[in-house]
Amino acid sequence: MSLMADPPGADRLSVRVRRGTSAWHDAAQRSGFLDALAAGRLGWEAYADLTAQHWFVYEALESAATTMADDPVVATFLFPELRRLPSLEADLRFLYGANWLDQATALPATTVYCTRLRDVAFRAATGFVAHQYTRYIGDLSGGQYLGPAIARAYGLPSPDGHRFFHFAGVEPASFKAHYRGLLDGVPWSYPQQNEFIAEVAEAYRLNIGVLTELHHKWS
């Protein structure tokens, strides 16, 4: 009896990470909270709260990008057009007003998420790229459906209140293909690749924790 060989390219990091984290990715996609938002079944305050939680996460992640910018691997993955903090802050000003920072409060699950980011993304390229990959590739995937759905559900004028989902000058499919090509070229050892894949799974788990807490709070 012959064993079926892996398809060509199965050892590429971009393939390994998708295969190794598919269960976590699928679980994140099944968020009842995001489904309820997209359908307009929750008050606008629930969407504003999600936006606030995003701000805390991206503040940590984009601070890590600044700290790690001299790392040769991290430098390969730094794209100014991906930065979300300016868009999030504009959204929060629209949703909460000028004193938005006084009203934005990190949920316990968000605090755990940010603590993990500060533990791993500021110290090692594997940690930084894992969290960057999970956030931005997700934003350029499901986020491209979620943003317009939320705008329709809550009557948000374009682009006020949902700038977070707009990536000026970025074509999602082309960018994701380019990003995966960069992943495949990273000179990491197999153990480092495994560390990266494990941290992507952890990032998905942490994100699910935030969404679950939001669901319990607003449903």
Rank of each mutant, 00 (worst) to 15 (best):
H166E: 04
L13V: 14
E202H: 08
M68I: 01
W100Y: 08
P7L: 07
F165S: 11
A149I: 02
L214M: 07
V186D: 13
T111G: 14
R163F: 02
L82F: 14
F165C: 10
Y179W: 11
I208R: 06
R163V: 00
G127M: 09
T66S: 14
Y113V: 00
I208N: 05
K217E: 15
R135E: 12
A23R: 07
R152L: 06
L140A: 04
Y154G: 11
D71W: 00
D49M: 06
L206G: 10
D49L: 04
T67W: 02
E89F: 05
W24F: 09
A177G: 10
M4E: 07
G181M: 01
R135K: 04
A27W: 04
C114K: 09
A125H: 11
R123D: 15
V17D: 06
A173G: 12
F33G: 12
L140I: 00
E171S: 14
E62Q: 13
Y113M: 05
D139G: 07
G142E: 06
G209D: 05
V15Y: 13
R30A: 14
R93Y: 07
A28K: 01
L156W: 06
A65E: 15
M68A: 05
Y133L: 13
H178A: 15
V112A: 14
G32F: 03
Q144H: 03
A121K: 14
L13M: 15
V120Q: 06
G147P: 12
L34R: 02
P80V: 02
D70V: 01
A69F: 04
